[in-house]
Computed example of a mutant assay.
Amino acid sequence: MLEMDADAFEQLVVDELDALPDDMVDGLDNVVFVVEDRPEDGDPDLLGLYDGWALTERDRYGTGAELPDRIIVYREAHLAQCADLDELRDEVHTTLVHEIAHFYGIDDDRLHELGWA
């Protein structure tokens, strides 16, 4: 298992987010990125989670009172699944793309077809 403290991991996530193409992140509306150690249910294999309303479901959205959608990246699962820093960067990148895709309404089946799941 790779070792990395919470601050260093969060900075790695920020760096990978900054490296994503502008056209992927410019459309993100009312979304925050969060790093947590593990999911509430304790699932050791869950790398990330999109918590919110996808663009394709936002017909019920837009009253101005909505909390921000969240994209959560789980530190412990990433560290457990990665052998080195390069692999960790790649996996965080893939997780970010995967969860951002859910924001845009792309489901897991399509992500598998595209190689992002």
Score class of each variant (00 low, 15 high):
D22Q: 12
L17A: 08
L47P: 07
A6Q: 12
V25L: 02
F9A: 00
V14E: 15
V34T: 08
D59N: 14
E57I: 07
P39G: 05
V32K: 10
F33Q: 02
L28A: 05
A8V: 06
W53V: 11
E10F: 05
G52Y: 06
R38T: 11
Q11V: 07
L28W: 06
E16Y: 06
E36S: 08
A19P: 02
E57C: 09
Q11I: 08
V35T: 08
L47C: 05
T56K: 11
D37L: 04
N30R: 09
A8P: 02
D7F: 08
D26I: 03
G48W: 03
L17Y: 12
L49H: 14
D5T: 07
L28K: 07
Y61T: 10
L20T: 00
E10I: 02
D37V: 00
Q11Y: 04
T56H: 07
E57K: 14
L49Y: 13
V35A: 01
V32Y: 06
G48M: 01
L28Y: 01
D26H: 13
G27Y: 01
T56D: 08
L12G: 00
P21E: 06
V35I: 00
L12N: 01
D7A: 15
V34C: 00
D5N: 14
D51N: 13
A6G: 10
E10M: 07
D41M: 01
A8K: 11
D41Y: 03
D29T: 11
D26C: 11
D22V: 09
M4N: 06
A54I: 02
D22T: 09
E57L: 11
D18P: 06
A19Y: 05
A19S: 13
T56P: 07
A6S: 15
E40C: 08
G42Q: 04
V25R: 11
Y61E: 11
E3Y: 14
L55M: 11
W53F: 14
R60W: 12
D18N: 15
L49A: 12
G48V: 05
L12Q: 03
D29N: 15
D29C: 12
D22F: 10
M4V: 00
